[in-house]
């Protein structure tokens, strides 16, 4: 691990984003607009918005960061810059952590904005604190980044990379407890949902939204999320081959 290279990579990824105004606008505004749409849909049922709104604050960052990082990493591969970097004195983990840091920073801004809009403009009413909401959303974004980096190792083209979103993320979305509480699913399904990372992001978000302060249950979910993030990054580094055919 090399802090200089990790930080330089994070800075480089953020600079690339800075040149791409439209992507930045989409990253920051789409979650806000979707939450506004949701609150409008549930105009007559504020209790439903209060339950689902926070969950979406956990789901958006994961989905968005998954897509963005898997495509960014694939571009790195197809443009030859990955080959160049791997021929340079760079640890594979430096590269992945650089990406995680950069998109983690984007997630802080994205989730702060979406959270602020929900709480103070859309009237989202939760018992928990905005701070823990933000922590959960950023962890969820980091998870999406780590999973996206890992998934990109299995994609040869942009088309494949984009298809990984429905393949990897939609099943998790169905099973994460957004539509049906995880305990109320058939036992096979709830067992599957127990090993899917998004379930823990959603559980954590439901928990921090419902309680003041950090509960033991939320703490445990954070630990599981952290383990998934570290695991995906390490696995991502292991699947990134310096020598290719």
């Amino acid at each position: 691990m090399n802090v200089r290279i990790t930080m330089a990579t994070a800075g480089r990824v953020l600079t690339q984003l800075r040149h791409d105004h439209r992507t930045v606008a989409l990253l920051l505004l789409v979650p806000c607009l979707l939450l506004a749409l949701l609150s409008w849909v549930f105009d007559g049922q504020p209790a439903v918005f209060d339950r689902i709104g926070p969950l979406l604050l956990a789901i958006f960052p994961l989905v968005v960061m998954f897509i963005v990082t898997s495509v960014a990493m694939l571009r790195e591969r197809t443009s030859g810059t990955l080959e160049r970097l791997l021929a340079m004195p760079l640890n594979k983990l430096d590269l992945l952590l650089g990406y995680a840091l950069a998109f983690g920073a984007v997630a802080v801004v994205q989730s702060s904005l979406a959270g602020a809009v929900s709480l103070w403009l859309l009237g989202l009413d939760i018992a928990g604190s905005a701070g823990w909401l933000l922590v959960t959303a950023v962890l969820s974004a980091l998870l999406g980044t780590a999973l996206g980096l890992l998934a990109s190792a299995f994609a040869q083209t942009e088309f494949q990379a984009v298809q990984f979103m429905p393949a990897f993320v939609l099943p998790q979305l169905l099973l994460c407890g957004l539509f049906v509480p995880r305990g109320a699913m058939q036992s096979v399904l709830s067992a599957v949902s127990n090993v899917l990372p998004l379930s823990y992001a959603v559980d954590a978000m439901a928990e921090v939204a419902a309680s003041t302060g950090l509960t033991a249950a939320a703490g445990r979910d954070f630990l599981v999320l952290g383990a998934f993030i570290v695991g995906a990054l390490v696995l991502g580094a292991a699947t990134l081959r310096r020598r290719t055919a």
Binding site: T15, Q16, S79, T81, E83, R84
Partner: peptide
């Protein structure tokens, strides 16, 4: 590398 391997968006 044979094809220029630099970041087009930088």
């Amino acid at each position: 590398t044979q094809a220029p391997s630099v970041y087009a968006d930088l």
